[in-house]
């Protein structure tokens, strides 16, 4: 067993040659000093002024994973009201128990305070639920924007949107600035409390609910939807 002290174990210069047993200690000490320097720099930079320092895209904390952690006050709009029976939580497209059920009616406002009602038009309706911090919603809004500006939405179909999952501590807040930046044309119901999303059984973002002209659910879906599929679904809604 004593042979371990004899031969160098590594194909590198003998560590003992580079000084006493203090070598490792010095290295660890140097690294710890660097960590302290980094801490000093970080706190000095961020405490100098209240500026959100350069390069940061997102903010601080989110207390919980609620659908909406914010109050409506921060966006200056009223909380929405929901009437009717809530739809079950969405799980799969195949055999969705919500199909054929009457969708609840939600009333609220858009970002400017104008009243918005989900599905009262007597027309087939597509409702898309969007969260400002969700990268898939951000892509969906971009794709749909192009599709809409090409005039591809059938004239006898209503497209409504719901801004939900609103959280001032998450990226890309506030949602109204995001949608304005994307030139989002459809009406937006501001779901300040998350109650509308819950009543429609939202389980992921983005979330689609398709209604027939009589207000019954024709289909529900989660995730980015290609405009090809969207056109097929819209064509199949009962007029």
């Amino acid at each position: 067993m004593s042979r371990t002290q004899a031969a160098p174990r590594f194909e590198i210069p003998d560590p003992k040659a580079s000084g006493s047993g203090r070598g490792p200690l010095l290295i660890v000490g140097a690294v710890i000093s660097l960590i302290v320097v980094a801490a000093v720099i970080a706190f000095a930079v961020t405490s100098g002024g209240d500026s959100s320092s350069d390069g940061v895209e997102a903010g601080a904390a989110s207390p919980a994973g609620d659908l909406a952690a914010s109050s409506g006050a921060s966006l200056g709009v009223q909380d929405p009201q929901v009437a009717g029976v809530a739809l079950p939580l969405f799980e799969t497209v195949q055999g969705d128990p919500a199909v054929g059920k009457q969708a609840p009616v939600a009333t609220g406002t858009d970002f400017d305070g104008n009243p918005i009602e989900l599905h009262n038009t007597g027309k087939p309706t597509a409702i898309v639920f969007l969260a400002h911090w969700c990268p898939h919603c951000q892509r969906e809004v971009k794709d749909l924007g192009t599709w809409l500006s090409d005039g591809a939405l059938p004239p006898d179909v209503e497209l409504l949107s719901v801004a939900t999952g609103i959280d001032p501590n998450r990226p890309n807040y506030p949602p109204d600035e995001w949608l304005e930046r994307e030139n989002w044309a459809p009406p937006v119901l501001v779901d300040t409390t998350g109650a509308v999303a819950e009543a429609y059984g939202l389980s992921a973002f983005p979330y689609w609910v398709f209604l027939n002209a009589d207000g019954t659910v024709a289909a529900r879906a989660t995730g980015e939807m290609s405009t090809d599929v969207l056109e097929q679904v819209l064509a199949g809604l009962q007029r």
């Binding site: 940061v56 895209e57 997102a58 990268p135 898939h136 919603c137 892509r139 973002f205 983005p206």
Partner: peptide
């Protein structure tokens, strides 16, 4: 994000970026 899936978990999707320094 499209590599993961087409949708975001409503609470905490892995594609949610808390900060990017």
């Amino acid at each position: 994000p499209q590599f993961e899936s087409g949708s975001c978990d409503p609470t905490v999707p892995c594609t949610l970026i808390w900060f990017r320094r």
